[in-house]
Simulated assay, not measured.
Amino acid sequence: MRITVTVDGTRYTDDVEPRTLLVHYLRDQLGKVGTVVGCDTSNCGACTVHLNGQSVKSCSVLAVQADSAEITTIEGLARDGELHPVQKAFEDNHALQCGFCTPGMIMQSLDLLSENPDPDEQAVREGLEGNLCRCTGYQNIVRAVRDAAERMRPGAQPEIERAGETTGTATTPGMGGGVQA
């Protein structure tokens, strides 16, 4: 079947097998390898992308279902060489360890923040509960999402720059640290 989609601002028209999952179309045909194949059962959320502005697990959507849609992947977030505020907050707060879940976490975080621009810790945990991380313990992910909310609010100072705040979790670059409470 022939589909036409706009992915990260670029329009594509391709022939796809009717059974091709969106995650495989994005990775295999378009080279959007930041969209990770995790479980292929929609349990882990690693493959989360935005489809017409809403986060979806791309392993649960057929490519033909995305015909005429606008899709944003993790690769489409940075602009002019600058990371999106959510990406930067994840980096600055060490909200990753192995990095496998990070693209899906960031895409789901964007969806959460569009619905709730000032989430408390519980709201972040609930908003991300369909995305699994097997490394970090989630503490720094929660902090990163809350920091991103601040960064996206005009005039706010990012959490990483706030003086004197510590949480007792690991702060080594690339380490998530902590255990989910």
Rank of each mutant, 00 (worst) to 15 (best):
M1D: 12
I3M: 04
I3C: 09
T4F: 06
V7I: 07
D8V: 00
T10N: 12
T10S: 15
D14F: 11
L22D: 04
H24M: 14
L26Y: 10
K32E: 08
G34V: 06
T41M: 12
C44K: 12
A46G: 10
H50I: 02
N52W: 03
N52Q: 01
S60P: 03
V61C: 09
V64F: 10
V64L: 08
S68K: 14
E70M: 09
I71E: 04
I74G: 03
E75C: 09
E75S: 13
L77V: 09
G81H: 06
G81S: 07
E82G: 10
P85Q: 12
N93R: 09
L96P: 04
L96A: 05
F100R: 13
C101S: 08
T102W: 00
P103L: 01
Q108R: 02
S109P: 05
D111L: 00
E115W: 02
E115T: 14
P117I: 08
D118Q: 14
D118I: 07
V124H: 02
R125W: 00
R134G: 00
T136F: 00
G137I: 07
N140P: 06
N140G: 13
D147R: 02
D147S: 13
D147A: 14
R153Y: 07
I160R: 14
E161N: 13
T167K: 12
M175L: 12
